[in-house]
Design a protein around this nucleic acid. Structure first.
Length: 198
DNA sequence: AACACGATGGACT
DNA sequence: GTCCATCGTGTTA
């Protein structure tokens, strides 16, 4: 098995890390997924960022150094996987919004209660965490440990990248709602709402 | 202690 | 396109 991406990979601007995360592989719970869609949440000054109001118990992992998971519960039922980026105290992360299956197909189908490997299976942040069997107990988990439970390893670089505004951030300023900080692999069918991507 | 609401997803028209 | 399940968290009192 390949080595996890090093912690230094994450200790850069969220938008740079987001772009380079496309195509990389997430390993957990007997499943490997290739990242096809991400969103960068930068700080300070990003009014869509969970860290915009300061440090809380929930967002504490996001304030730590890059290379750790930040998982939170959304709408009382969906777990969202973020990979923390930047330096200690920065408060930035990349949300994993969609993936394509690499291995562990049976487990993925079981966890998503589906019978077919079609794109809707893994297109959406809640679906990704579900397929990986991740919940908030993994928030703060290091991603770069050689024998860590959850890790991100080298995958296949994308042939093209498309960009668009982030999804579901109506509470942010118009400027931040419009920022093209959602990135996806161009031409991939494993991408959520294609609207706004170009 | 009460309250409003969310970086969504699935079912349905 | 519309509706809404479901609950932890942050805010307010």
């Amino acid at each position: 098995m390949s080595k996890p991406l090093p912690q230094s990979f994450y200790e850069r601007d969220a938008l740079v890390v987001a772009e380079e995360l496309l195509g990389q592989h997430i390993h957990h719970g007997g499943v490997v997924l290739r990242i096809t869609e991400v969103e960068a949440y930068r700080h300070p000054g990003d009014t869509a960022n969970h860290c915009r109001m300061g440090r809380t118990k929930r967002n504490a992992p996001m304030w730590g150094p890059g290379g750790h998971a930040y998982v939170y519960l959304c709408y009382g039922m969906h777990n969202m996987l973020n990979l923390v980026t930047g330096a200690d105290g920065e408060g930035a992360a990349v949300l994993i919004r969609a993936c394509e299956p690499v291995s562990g197909h049976e487990l993925i189908l079981e966890r998503r209660r589906s019978e077919a490997m079609r794109p809707v299976l893994l297109t959406g942040p809640g679906k990704v965490a579900s397929a990986l069997a991740l919940d908030t107990s993994f928030s703060g988990h290091a991603l770069f440990r050689p024998r860590g439970l959850l890790s991100v390893r080298e995958g296949d670089a994308p042939s093209a990248i498309v960009r668009g505004p982030r999804v579901g951030i109506g509470y942010a300023t118009p400027e931040h709602q419009a920022a093209p900080w959602r990135l996806a692999i161009g031409g991939s069918v494993w991408v959520s709402a294609r609207r706004g991507l170009q």
